[in-house]
């Protein structure tokens, strides 16, 4: 990077940027938008969660049904996120680094779960594994439970969060092209080495965003899971379903207390990203 461009500016500033007035105007617009659409809802969740004080808040979280719903949600995310991460990286490699006929069709099919109404995402598994479905009678004979049990919840969540990582990586990897990988290969690196040393560092942001989104959606999904859950208290209720139950019991404080746990995910995101940024900076320092 040329040092000359930095001379007239504070260190750390970008080489090129807008005039301060424009910059602050843009920041102001962005912040107003975020406040109206995101900060207010977040504040509403927390204000209702803490309406009756901290002790009531903690009490709501210690309830056994709440704890079992948290456990189920964590299990679901722990299964779905790695699977979809693996798929996302593989798919992005095939799609972004190679040209083949039907590529756009494939991308569109990967997008498809986004546009399927959550209600339908649940329903399709009921149509297949339900008692009236294709495999239902056979499953019942062998006493295997898929829908209205944990496997169904995991399947529905897999479906809903299917495109996240792939969709995050494809535009990024396409924008980067493949010259760097080709250079590495020409210089004698193996395919795996190339991927680990060249591709992976380049797509780390995409992976981080993709995993964060995938995880957030996996934990927060309501509609699809609601269809396949069966709503058995203490057994097949995930956190979002439990929130609905509490709300419908007029237990608003507890409902928002549990919901606030999911809102905390955003804070965890913040921590993960800060750590990642710090690590990257360290790496650069060592180079």
């Amino acid at each position: 990077m040329s040092a000359a461009t930095y001379t007239s500016r504070k260190s750390g500033d970008r080489a090129q940027t807008e005039p301060p007035l424009v910059r602050w105007l843009l920041i102001a617009i962005a912040l107003i938008f975020l406040t109206l659409f995101l900060l207010l809802p977040l504040a509403a969740v927390f204000s209702q969660a803490f309406e009756k004080g901290l002790s009531v808040y903690l009490e709501a979280l210690r309830e056994p049904d709440t704890l079992s719903s948290i456990k189920l949600t964590l299990i679901t995310a722990a299964v779905t996120v790695p699977l979809n991460l693996f798929f996302g990286v593989t798919a992005a490699w095939a799609i972004a680094k190679f040209t083949f006929p039907g590529k756009n069709l494939l991308i569109t099919l990967i997008d498809l779960p986004f546009s399927v109404s959550p209600v339908i995402s649940g329903l399709i598994y009921v149509l297949i594994f339900g008692l009236q479905g294709w495999l239902g009678p056979w499953l019942q004979e062998h006493d295997i439970k898929i829908v209205f049990a944990v496997p169904g919840i995991i399947l529905a969540t897999l479906f809903v969060t299917f495109p996240f990582v792939a969709r995050e990586l494809i535009p990024l990897m396409e924008a980067q092209g493949k010259e760097e990988e080709e250079a590495a290969l020409v210089l004698g690196a193996s395919g795996l080495q190339t991927f680990l040393r060249v591709t992976l560092p380049n797509i780390k942001w995409g992976i981080i965003y993709g995993v964060i989104l995938c995880n957030a959606r996996a934990m927060g999904e309501f509609g699809a899971v609601s269809v396949v859950s069966g709503h058995i208290r203490g057994m097949t209720n995930t956190v979002p379903l439990h929130v609905e139950i509490l709300y419908n019991e007029y237990n608003y404080t507890a409902a928002f207390a549990v919901a606030s746990l999911l809102a905390f995910l955003a804070l965890i995101t913040l921590v993960i990203k800060s750590v990642a940024e710090w690590k990257v900076r360290q790496q650069l320092g060592n180079d």
């Binding site: 995101l38 809802p41 957030a216 959606r217 927060g220 309501f222 979002p240 999911l262 913040l270 990203k273």
Partner: peptide, 29 residues
């Protein structure tokens, strides 16, 4: 653009806030 290019107080919080709609169950939203 604002989140990546500019530095201002509260930037990190604003950045984290963006994921909220995913994490919040749709019914709660």
């Amino acid at each position: 653009w604002v989140l990546v290019r500019y530095r201002f107080p509260g930037r990190r919080i604003a950045d984290a806030l963006v994921d909220l709609p995913f994490a919040l169950p749709t019914a709660v939203a």
